[in-house]
Each structure stands twice: as C-alpha cells, then as structure tokens.
C-alpha cells in the first residue's frame, strides 16, 4: 500500500507515492537523489539528517514521509542561491568543515537559527546546534563560522544574504 504525497522540496513540487512507514530522509535521498542529507544514527540524536520543514529544523530520519504531505522542505542542496549561502562559505573558510558528514545538517540547524534570530549569542548558537554532533572539529570553528554570518559581523555578508533570500 502506497500513500500519495505532495511536497515542495527546494522550491520544486513533487507528487510521490510512498510507503506509509517510509521516513522523509529516505524519500529525499533514495527517491529524489538529494544525498546531501545524511543518516548518522537513525534515532534523531546526531542531527546529520537535519532539514528545514516549513522553515523549522527537523530530523528527517524521524519524520514519516506522509507527515510531510503539503509541506515545504529545504535541504542543503536548496539553500544556496547563485552563490553559495553565506553559511556555506563561512563554514568552508573558517575551518568548520573536516570530514563534512555532519556539515549539511549543521548548516541547516544554523540557518534555522539565523532566520529566527539573526544576532544570536554564543550560548544561543551552541544551544541551537547541540543536537548536531560533529566528531572532527571540536565545534569552536563551527560556532565562529555561524557568528561570522550575523549581519553585524559583515556588511558584505548581509548583502549576500539579502540576495539569496530573494
């Protein structure tokens, strides 16, 4: 038995038939080929599968695909405009990426934070990414990368963000 769902992923509409127990992460990775979202634990504890569902960060390994029906999803592949998203550039430049397996989920968690709270404190940043595990970097550079994307830290980045949100 398959369930029909309509979802918008990275701005494109998809009409799919999914198994009722299929998780959103599998739909993204297997059915749509969006392999940027990763499975790191399957229990919602590592955050590697974090995507934005109607603008909120969720563990796509815990969301049943039918639940996403009618909703809008943004994955790591969808946050860049013509240029990479400022968070993507900042992560790369600040040494916030090592193996990179946690990076897509981490950036999505950070994007959700900044969309909601453009000038977060260090404590707020740490809290926002506390559900995203990184085993390589020790987090210091991730926090700096996110901080550097706050509008007050860079006029150029503010401009860029303005553009990519259009």
């Amino acid at each position: 038995m398959l369930v029909p769902i309509n979802i918008i992923v990275n701005g494109e509409e998809y009409h799919l038939k999914v198994k009722p127990n299929q998780i959103l992460l599998d739909v993204l990775r297997e059915d749509l080929g969006l392999t940027g979202s990763k499975q790191g634990c399957g229990l919602g504890k590592c955050g590697a599968c974090t995507v934005l569902l109607n603008g909120k960060p969720v563990h796509s390994c815990l969301i049943l695909a039918p639940y996403a029906d009618g909703k809008e999803i943004v994955t790591i592949e969808g946050i860049a405009g013509e240029e990479p998203h400022p968070l993507q550039t900042a992560f790369a430049e600040k040494g916030a990426v090592q193996c990179g397996f946690c990076t897509p989920g981490m950036i999505n968690a950070a994007k959700a934070l900044l969309d909601d709270n453009p000038e977060p404190s260090e404590a707020e940043i740490k809290l926002a990414i506390a559900g995203n595990l990184c085993r390589c970097t020790g987090y210091n550079q991730i926090v700096s990368a996110i901080q550097s994307c706050a509008p007050s830290n860079s006029d150029i980045q503010t401009e860029k963000r303005g553009k990519s949100n259009e």
Partner: peptide, 21 residues
C-alpha cells in the same frame, strides 16, 4: 598558509558523495 580545505565548500554545499551516497 591557512587555506580552507580544498573540498570544504563542496562538502558545505552537500555535493560531496560519501561512501553512503
């Protein structure tokens, strides 16, 4: 010199294909 890793941006954009992918 402190360069970003040569594949960091690709990773940050979710384009890197890991074994799992």
């Amino acid at each position: 010199k402190s360069f970003p890793q040569i594949d960091a941006l690709e990773k940050a954009m979710g384009k890197t294909k890991f074994v799992t992918d």
